[in-house]
């Protein structure tokens, strides 16, 4: 089973990288960008076949290592 994890900065946490990317896009002539938030994407190949068990395991991975929940949110897609 594959797990796809998005890690993003929480609302209200300043994202200077996102701001710089927005500036770069604007300087390339892409108009109308109101905001850019950058984050991480991780793809895990899991041996687990039970969906509930896989989700519980990936959630624990996110809480313990993959995201810093002081500043980051995460979402998990299994499939």
């Amino acid at each position: 089973m594959k797990a796809r994890i998005h890690v993003t900065l929480k609302h209200g946490v300043l994202d200077p990288q996102g701001k710089a990317i927005a500036g770069a896009l604007a300087s390339l002539g892409f108009a109308g960008i109101e905001d850019v938030r950058q984050g991480k994407f991780l793809e895990l190949n899991l041996a687990e076949t039970d969906r509930a068990k896989a989700e519980a395991a990936v959630r624990a991975m996110c809480e313990k290592l993959l995201a810093n929940t002081v500043i980051e949110n995460y979402t998990i897609e299994l499939g």
Binding site: V13, L14, P16, Q17, A20, N68, V70, I71
Partner: peptide, 16 residues
């Protein structure tokens, strides 16, 4: 900070 021994987190410098 990552180990939770002190609160908070160190982020990318505002100036990048």
């Amino acid at each position: 900070a990552e180990a939770g021994l002190v609160p908070g987190v160190l982020m990318r410098n505002a100036s990048l």
